[in-house]
């Protein structure tokens, strides 16, 4: 049976997609220009700036720095976020709502505020981590963890606690029951959360602006810096790589999750 979508909705959906995809298309086309400057529409197509990106020491190191930072952030955010979501869903106490809001606050607070607050804190606390990868890492973790709390929290909301209780009364210790029953059933939420954490960290700009060191910049900062002095198409080429990486990581994880499902069925 064919499902009929009302025409106005269809039009809205198409417009919405266009609105979201157009900037990406523009960046990709601009990065493929054969001209000297960042223009749209591009003056002819070539791989000139893509090659320039691949040969640029500055961009490549920024790209891999961001990649490494996003991975490190993903690992810690996933663990912290999952633990926090479990705590929030399992415990009953006064002020739980306030605590949840507090955990999620980095998402609602402007990134500039979070970045500046951390910067000021590092300086005044004299910890010597301002403008180092460690300080930056902490900032990214702070910024990414709420996304994990959100997705894992959603998974836990639909998770039936009696599954874990059944495991316990069948003889499993609390840890074994969690690992063998709860974890597999909220794995999708954790996976989605970790992709979010990776992507959010990879694209993070405001917090990085305050916390990154001049010689080790994440990709968004490097792009911004180069565009400040010269309207350079290699920034758009860098954008192409960033978009590709993010898309690939989403597709790959999707794939992994599905493969796991398939294996389960055997």
């Amino acid at each position: 049976m064919e499902r009929k979508i009302p025409l106005p909705l269809l039009v809205l959906a198409v417009l919405g997609f266009a609105y979201m995809l157009l900037p990406i298309l523009i960046v990709v086309l601009a990065g493929l220009t054969s001209g000297e400057f960042l223009t749209f529409p591009p003056e002819g197509l070539s791989l000139r700036w893509v090659i320039a990106f691949l040969q640029s020491e500055k961009y490549l190191s920024a790209f891999f720095f961001s990649f490494r930072l996003a991975l490190m952030t993903m690992v810690v955010s996933t663990i912290l976020g999952t633990a926090a979501a479990l705590f929030l869903s399992r415990s009953r106490f006064v002020g739980r709502g306030a605590m949840r809001a507090f955990f999620l606050s980095p998402v609602v607070l402007p990134g500039v505020v979070v970045g500046f607050a951390l910067y000021a804190f590092y300086i005044s606390a004299g910890m010597g981590i301002s403008r180092t990868i460690w300080g930056l890492w902490i900032g990214h973790i702070l910024y990414s963890t709420p996304y994990v709390i959100g997705t894992v929290g959603a998974a836990l909301a639909t998770y039936d606690v009696s599954l874990e209780e059944a495991a316990r009364s069948l003889g499993a210790s609390p840890w074994r029951a969690f690992r063998k029953v709860t974890l597999p059933n909220i794995a999708q939420g954790i996976q989605a959360g970790s992709i979010f954490a990776f992507i959010v960290s990879f694209g993070q700009f405001e917090v990085s602006l305050f916390l990154s060191a001049p010689n080790s910049e994440p990709l968004p900062i490097a792009m911004y810096n180069s565009l400040r002095y010269k309207f350079d198409p290699s920034a758009a080429a860098a954008g192409i790589f960033a978009i590709t990486l993010v898309t690939a990581s989403v597709l790959l994880t999707n794939r992994l999750v599905n493969i796991r499902r398939l294996l389960d069925r055997q």
């Binding site: 039936d160 009696s162 059944a166 316990r168 009364s169 499993a172 059933n185």
Partner: peptide, 27 residues
């Protein structure tokens, strides 16, 4: 609970959805 030797069947059965019937019973 794991030290009590008491078996419980829940109202919604609580079958582990990520395991097949064999693994559920073997748990």
């Amino acid at each position: 609970p794991e030290a009590r030797g008491i078996g419980i069947v829940f109202q919604n059965y609580a079958i582990f959805p990520h395991m097949n019937v064999f693994d559920n019973i073997a748990f």
